[in-house]
């Protein structure tokens, strides 16, 4: 029968080993992540954060599920459309859901677009295709529509 000491040992050894593996994998995988980003991309990211865009949208699939996923926004929408939304002085309203009227200036809008462009270039292990539709069903449907 298991004793309390053995149970404690199981906890301590299991935790230590898995944490060590976790740290090792973290170092291994982060070596491949780009860190020296162009200045406009970094500025765009900080604008994204400062205005809590993730409080409505998702990016890389993370956020609040109230407004569209923006990882591939520039593949779905024209850059001027996106710029128009960002610079709008009135709440943008599509399908009845309002966006905060941020009224970004030209420079800020360009920075955010640079950020979206960079995010759009990431290799997301398949997810980059999902919000552009990945399933065979969807592909067939799109083919039908274009014919």
């Amino acid at each position: 029968m298991l004793t309390k000491q053995q149970a404690k040992l199981f906890f301590l050894v299991g935790t230590f080993v898995t944490f060590a593996v976790f740290i090792g994998l973290t170092i291994y995988s982060l070596r491949q992540v780009q860190t020296n980003l162009p200045e406009d991309v970094a500025r765009g990211k900080h604008l994204w954060e400062k205005n809590n865009c993730m409080g409505c949208h998702t990016i890389l699939g993370e956020g609040a599920y109230y407004a569209p996923e923006l990882t591939n926004v520039l593949k779905r929408r024209d850059v001027n459309f996106v710029k128009g939304v960002l610079m709008s002085e009135k709440p943008w309203d599509l399908h009845g859901r309002k966006m905060v009227a941020y009224g970004f200036n030209e420079q800020q809008a360009n920075d955010l677009i640079a950020f979206f462009k960079w995010v759009g270039t990431l290799n997301l292990n398949g997810f980059e295709k999902v919000d552009r539709t990945v399933s065979p069903l969807a592909k067939d449907r799109m083919k039908d529509q274009s014919n």
Partner: peptide, 9 residues
């Protein structure tokens, strides 16, 4: 972080 990837990580 400047990178959204590292931020998320």
């Amino acid at each position: 972080f400047d990178s959204q990837v590292l931020d998320s990580f």
